[in-house]
């Protein structure tokens, strides 16, 4: 069985940015919490990316594996009441380079707005799905924010 690795488009974006990053292979995981357990990391060190659909396009919300996205907060940040979680069918069509449920906040369709939960910035490094359920991407949180052009906000449920 072949291990799925990070898509070339993601690796190229990281290479162009000349930032330090790691690709960590691991047994297949299907949630950020599972990924954290597999890698022996705390839940707050691993982030998940939730894709949202808005009238202005897709928004990728990045928050700790331990947290759940608060759509009310996201609607406030975006100043738009029409914000919904993307369905699997939508995700499969919009992000063909990535495995379903493993969309990272980098690469993929251009123009997505990126929101990063402010609490992630408490850690110097963050681990994310690298577009596949069998490889994780570790990079500095500041690099993630800069590279993705993310807006910092409080996105987690209280």
């Amino acid at each position: 069985m072949t291990t799925r690795t990070a898509p070339e488009s993601l690796v190229q974006q990281l290479e162009r940015a000349s930032i330090a990053y790691e690709l960590i292979g691991h047994p297949r995981t299907t949630s950020a919490a599972d990924e954290a357990r597999t890698l022996g990391l705390d839940l707050h060190e691993v982030a998940k990316t939730v894709v949202l659909v808005t009238p202005d396009g897709f928004v990728r919300a990045v928050l700790p594996a331990s947290e759940r996205v608060d759509l009310r907060k996201v609607r406030t940040v975006l100043d738009n009441r029409d914000v919904q979680l993307a369905t699997e069918e939508v995700l499969a069509g919009a992000y063909p380079d990535f495995e379903l449920g493993a969309v990272p906040p980098l690469s993929g369709a251009g123009g997505d707005r990126i929101l990063v939960d402010r609490s992630l910035c408490e850690n110097e490094w963050v681990v994310l799905e690298a577009g596949t359920h069998e490889q994780s991407l570790r990079l500095r949180t500041t690099d993630l924010v800069e590279l993705s052009g993310a807006q910092l906000a409080d996105l987690s449920q209280d």
Binding site: E15, S18, A20, E22, L23, I24, G25, G40, R138, D143
Partner: peptide
């Protein structure tokens, strides 16, 4: 690379590495 905490990864160094 095998890091001090025991995990292995493919490490792509940045300008500060």
């Amino acid at each position: 690379v095998r890091w001090d905490d025991g995990h292995q990864s493919l490490f792509h160094p940045g300008s500060d590495a």
